[in-house]
Design a protein around this nucleic acid. Structure first.
Length: 283
DNA sequence: ACTTGTGCCTCGCTTACGTCA
DNA sequence: CTTGACGTAAGCGAGGCACAA
């Protein structure tokens, strides 16, 4: 159990690290799937694009289904306060908007033949469906593993994939949907933590760099005050900046030879900044 | 061409439950 | 046995997009 958790955390952090490397350009972005290699903000955009592309595909099926099914009443019980709270729950997420239309045609169809399995434990019968209290059912290890594998392939599911997965795992499509939703949330949370840590380190490095430069300025001023040394020294204007990478080249002489080299991250070119700093506004 | 209504999807936030120390 | 912390399945509302009327 503990190991499992750690494994999950590890996989999360590993994928996050991969994202970080991708951001820094250390890993060719083509080495991982687009959605997973992108930072969270970019993932938002890719998600939109993905959603659009998926809707392009799934939308056609939906359109097809809609023409067939849109005006059909939901299966008996689904709309009319079925005593089974599971089914009621399954339609609730969209209750805000689907109070009129009810369940999605595809799901309606699927859930009709894919009876609620309620996974292991399945003590559904004695869990009093009538009281309206929501049941929480833990997914089995196998189910979680399959879902995890699927998530690695794609972080969002098309309706077809969702149905297939639900059927394969003997779950309701709604459960698969919720699992992916929560999984995306966990991934994002993890990524945010990684981003925070990265920014923290950047801040520390920049502070250190600032301290170093201040010290250097002080030393240069001190040199300027002593004429003999000042006349002998080579021009201190060797602090040139490369316009392309914005790196400051080291002076040929060093009055601060004991100072540390600039931290790699602090000296990183602008293109390596965390992309979320340049990210478009999120909603 | 533009507007409006509908259906669907995803997200963020939250709640409730299961597990463990 | 109880309790608090933690992980996670699930509920809810909001926003956005596609599509049809």
């Amino acid at each position: 159990m503990l190991l499992e958790k750690e494994d999950l955390a590890l996989s999360l952090s590993l994928s996050s690290s991969a994202n970080r490397f991708d951001r820094l350009g250390l890993v060719p972005s083509s080495s991982s799937s687009p959605s997973r290699s992108l930072p969270s903000s970019c993932q938002q955009w890719s998600r939109l694009l993905l959603a659009r592309s998926e809707r392009g595909g799934a939308g056609e099926a939906r359109r097809g289904l809609r023409t067939i099914d849109v005006n059909q009443p939901p299966p008996a019980g689904a709309a009319a306060g079925r005593p089974d709270s599971e089914e009621a729950d399954a339609s609730s997420p969209n209750s805000g908007v689907s109070s009129v239309g009810g369940k999605r045609p595809a799901e309606r169809e699927a859930e009709h033949d894919a009876e609620p399995s309620c996974s292991r434990g399945a003590s559904d019968e004695e869990e009093g469906d009538g009281d309206g209290s929501r049941k929480k059912l833990r997914l089995s290890k196998d189910q979680s593993a399959v879902l995890e594998e699927s998530f690695k392939e794609h972080t969002t599911l098309s309706p077809k994939q969702k149905l297939a997965l639900a059927k394969q795992l003997n779950l309701r499509p709604r459960q698969v949907e919720v699992w992916f939703q929560n999984r995306r949330a966990r991934t994002k949370l993890k990524q945010t933590e990684v981003d925070c840590e990265f920014l923290k380190r950047c801040c520390e490095n920049l502070t250190e760099e600032n301290r170093r430069l201040q010290k250097e300025v002080q030393e240069l001023r001190a040199l300027k005050l002593s004429p003999q040394l000042y006349m002998q020294m080579t021009p201190p204007t060797t602090l040139t900046m490369c316009p392309s990478c914005e790196r400051v080249s080291k002076p040929s002489f060093s009055t601060t030879s004991t100072t540390n080299p600039p931290p790699s991250e602090a000296a990183a070119p602008r293109s390596l900044r965390p992309p979320f700093l340049d990210a478009p506004p999120q909603r």
